[in-house]
Simulated assay, not measured.
Amino acid sequence: MKPKGYIHLYTGNGKGKTTAALGLALRAAGAGLQVFIAQFVKGMHYSELESLGRIPEINIRQYGLDCFIVNEPTEKDIRAARKGLEEVTDIIRHHRAGVVILDEVCIALHYRLFGLEEIISLLKTKPEDMEIVMTGRYAPVELYEYADLITEMKEVKHYYNKGIDARKGIEF
Rank of each mutant, 00 (worst) to 15 (best):
D148N: 08
I164H: 11
K157R: 07
E128P: 07
T135V: 03
G136L: 04
I132V: 15
K162D: 08
E128K: 12
G136C: 10
M134L: 15
M134T: 13
E131T: 10
G163H: 05
M153K: 02
M130E: 05
K126P: 04
L143T: 00
R137I: 07
E145F: 10
V133A: 00
R167K: 14
K157N: 04
P127G: 03
N161F: 14
E131V: 14
Y144M: 13
Y159P: 02
T135F: 00
M153R: 00
A139H: 01
M134K: 07
E128V: 07
N161M: 09
T151P: 09
Y138C: 14
E128M: 01
V141I: 11
A147P: 02
L143W: 02
Y144H: 12
E152R: 06
E128R: 08
K154D: 04
M153P: 06
Y144L: 09
I164R: 10
E152N: 00
L149N: 15
P140S: 09
E128T: 09
K162S: 13
Y138K: 15
K126R: 14
Y146D: 03
I132C: 03
K157I: 07
H158D: 05
Y146H: 08
M130T: 01
V156A: 12
P140V: 12
A166D: 05
L149E: 11
P140L: 09
M134P: 03
G163E: 13
E152D: 02
V156G: 11
A147W: 01
Y146M: 07
T135W: 00
E142T: 01
Y159T: 12
V156C: 08
M153D: 04
R137Y: 07
G163D: 10
D165C: 11
K162V: 13
I150A: 11
V133Q: 00
E152W: 02
G163A: 13
A147K: 00
D165N: 15
K157G: 01
V133W: 02
G136D: 03
Y159V: 13
Y160C: 10
T135S: 03
H158A: 09
Y138L: 12
E145G: 10
Y160H: 11
L149K: 12
K126W: 01
D129L: 08
M130C: 06
K154G: 01
E142L: 07
E145H: 13
K157Y: 03
K157C: 08
D165L: 14
Y138S: 11
T151S: 13
D165W: 11
Y138H: 13
L143P: 01
G163I: 12
K154V: 11
E155Y: 00
E128N: 09
D129N: 14
E142Y: 01
K126L: 03
E155V: 06
L149W: 15
M134Y: 06
R137M: 08
A147G: 08
L143M: 06
